[in-house]
Design a protein around this nucleic acid. Structure first.
Lengths: 342, 342
DNA sequence: TTGTATGCGTTATCAC
DNA sequence: GTGATAACGCATACAA
């Protein structure tokens, strides 16, 4: 490996001079710059960022800890993060937790050891501890997508789950649907909880009776959506509309409906949260509350970089923000007016 | 920041002893281990991997350089890479090149500066130079998905584009299709080229006339697929079947067909390469040659780790391998027998 | 404008 | 078993 010293020797200068030329730091004449550049090229010198980072106490690395990059929603978020990070001269470490708090903890620990400058986290747990640990190390953390219980102890960038669910439900009510079942997500994830709350609020505001029958809990997976829809459809009288709490649940529900020989929207209307990127779909079909996934990742990264800059100039710590991005309701072909009762 | 020295002081030992305990290296009594552990916990000590990496000349970091994580094919590959890397104790840096050789070069340079131990690359260019540069630095490189022109100067893990295209074409021929147009990818990407070659070989083997009309070049995008399909469908007589060289082209072609008021497969049969992960699709529809995306990423990472281990123990360099994973032809609803000519 | 001395936090070497 | 010393490659502080 060729070091800054080798370059210095060949150029007939001191290592620090080479450093200055590389980083456009301090003073040097055009002539020395040339000699140094020559030496660098002759030797094929590649600066060692490890050493630089150690000295500077700054790595220019961010980490993105999410549940599963394979979900196109997270993929899009990730792309937003990577673009923003890259533009600011940061590289990105990617970590999948699969909703496991053990994996989350393990990853966070390694990331701190690696001295990443900041962390973007989709929390798999409601516990504050892993985040506080990072903050104690002076590493900024921004939470994406999910609100944590209790008070705000980090910036949060998420989308309007409550409002989106409220709007979607109003759409169904306006179409005349009364027997609506929400296929909800896990109880301990804030997005699932907020969507449920928005759903129930819309029912209440429309003076519809609300019972425990209106909500079926489950997970954010296709299998769960399939099971939940089955359960709802087996009732008598069955629901006229289903509200899927996310994209995977919607797909599972759709398949369950078809498997029963029923059609969407002829027999059952279906709405969902999240949106599969439209590129990936043959023909956009589902009526959804679409989240700005790319923007969420991009914005969260900007917030993180801001925080880092603030901390660097030792500015007084502002209060944490809870940034809620708007959600767009897109009416497509999976919903229609409720058939009159027999 | 608390360092190994602080821990050593509190535990009443030398820094090196702390190091030994942390890394389960060398000898120490159970008693000193306890004292050190205590001190670590009291201080909330987090080892600095930067310093460790600098000293060890090894970062335990891999990099994945691909075109666009937003494409579900690459997402799946990425997940395979991350899983394999994580299992082996490596973290992963993610980079999107958007098929730009400038971005590719820029990223590779930074990755070398960061002293990553190995690189998984989906090349955006046919040039060997960026790869050779990495190898000169002692960084192993494994190529994913695309063969480079000329001789093998790095391991390659890809899938059987030629064979898959050959099989898909035979499927169309068996259904009686004779006017088949391939909507091909870019001329300078090996996967596009191999698929074209497989397509043409199948036509030749079936003693079908082949003209320049049989292939329309384009890009691996929805827009391009749309344009190419339009162009093909405007001919008279028009094609009875279209062969899309990848998933995005297939989606664009499908939309173009529908826009012309035609149906798949009633009016035109459609086959494609790549497969959208079936989870993401309402009902699997397209007849495809499906690539083992996850396995491709996983396998490539294993190959990379093998190479690194080999280099570490200074084993003699084996020849580079060109690993071709099998592709599965899945017949679904987008193809049917060709209508008899009027 | 350039150079010298020093330290970032760790671990390898070799002595005790 | 344990520790003193030096080195990994670079950049800051200060001197020249």
């Amino acid at each position: 490996m060729t070091t800054i010293r080798d370059v210095a020797k060949l150029a007939g200068v001191a290592p620090i001079t080479v450093s200055r030329v590389i980083n456009h730091n301090g003073y040097f004449t055009e002539e020395t710059r040339g000699r140094v550049q020559n030496a660098i090229e002759q030797l094929g010198y590649v600066p060692n960022k490890l050493a630089r980072s150690l000295r500077l106490r700054k790595t220019s690395m961010l980490a993105l800890v999410l549940t599963d990059i394979t979900n196109p929603f997270w993929t899009t978020v990730a792309r937003g993060v990577e673009d923003a990070a890259s533009d600011a001269g940061f590289n990105l470490i990617l970590c999948n937790t699969d909703e496991s708090d053990l994996k989350e903890e393990k990853y966070l620990k390694v990331l701190l050891e690696r001295q990443v400058d900041g962390i973007l986290l989709v929390p798999s747990t409601n516990q504050a501890e892993p985040i506080l640990m990072a903050q104690r190390q002076g590493v900024q953390v921004v939470i994406i997508d999910r609100r944590l219980d209790g008070e705000l102890f980090a910036d949060v960038v998420r989308s309007d789950s409550f409002g989106g669910a409220y709007q979607l439900t109003r759409h169904l009510l306006a179409l005349g649907h009364r027997r609506i079942v929400m296929l909800a997500g896990p109880r301990d994830v804030s997005t699932a909880e907020d969507r449920r709350a928005g759903f129930l609020k819309a029912l209440e505001d429309a003076r519809q009776p609300v019972t425990s029958q209106n909500v079926l809990y489950g997970e954010f997976t296709i299998e769960s959506g399939h099971r939940q829809a089955d359960q709802a459809l087996n009732r008598s009288p069955g629901p006229t509309a289903l509200f899927a709490a996310n994209n995977f649940i919607a797909i599972g529900a759709y398949r369950a409906i078809r498997q029963k020989g029923l059609s969407v929207p002829e027999d059952v209307s279906l709405v969902g949260f999240d949106d599969l990127p439209s590129e990936l779909v043959w023909e956009p079909f589902l009526t959804v509350a679409a989240q700005p996934a790319y923007e969420m990742g991009h914005r969260a990264t900007e917030v993180l970089l801001d925080r880092m800059a603030e901390a660097a100039r030792e500015a007084p710590q502002r209060n944490f923000e809870d940034i809620i991005l708007p959600v767009e309701t897109i009416v497509r072909k999976s919903t229609r007016a409720c058939k009159p009762e027999n």
